[in-house]
Amino acid sequence: MRAPDRTVVALVMAFVVLVAAGFFLPSWAVSLLVVSLARGIVALGLMVQFRSGLVSFGQALFFAVGGYAVGLIALKLRVTDVILLPLVGVAAATLLGVALGFLMRRYREIFFAMLSLGFSMLFYGLLVKTETLGSTDGFNVPTPTVFGLRLSVLATRTLLYDLTVASAVGVALGVHWYLGTILGRLDTALRDNEVRVEYLGYAPARVIHVQYVLGAALAGGAGALTALAVGHIDPSMAYWTTSGELVFVTILSGTGSVIAPFLGSLVFGLIQTFALQYAPSIWQMILGVALLAIILYFPGGLWSALERSRVRA
């Protein structure tokens, strides 16, 4: 009999607790959790690439593609199903990820980062110039429906929250499994020594392509959920500061566990919310100091800080 996997147990417990908490939490907390979990899903994809030593500085591209795919399908084709729409976001981002991946897999380090940034800014420019998509203002996303039914505002919000919690836990479990497979374990191997991977009979570029598509799919799904929850999309979703925030969260979180990006994203969301409220003029400075402290004292991110305290306990 094998001991139950602690990460799996923690995730299942988190799912139960979060869904139950959804009935009691004030609306600002529900919004914060939805946005944070969605951002955590994107950071999870970045974490996988980060383990190979790759930083995509343009992950907002797929985040925005997921959001705009949902917005367009909902607006133009009148598809508003709450289950179908996120899948559309995932599909759109995945297709783009597969295509761009053929180019990205040939680059490493700063070139990989800058190329991904370039693609995201290209998309941003495209959105800003397209007047039918509202240019810089973007447009409102229709309220999602369930089996063709339109629910109350409160019920819709709870539903989107539960859907986001379920998605976050689901993808965390999926990525946790992936990281234990042969392909998944090649991430660190690739960072350490690509030549050896090649001489063991596997194509390093294939690993990078798989990771890139995985990251794209996760970001697309998260973008779709965010678009539905916020009810509005605009080009800032694709802007480089959005990508920067996502990289920020990934570094803040650390790569030790699939739970880390969600914790990191939540901490980021909390700092952002409260700093904005109490110190609106210096909230970015507070974020900067927080990241600086993490890098100086816990170079492995928040997760390594948690692990260290657990060892001590």
Binding site: G180, I182, L183, Y202
Partner: peptide
């Protein structure tokens, strides 16, 4: 990598 061949990287 020796066991799995090209397509079966998804085994634990």
């Amino acid at each position: 990598l020796a066991d799995s061949g090209r397509r079966a990287g998804l085994h634990p």
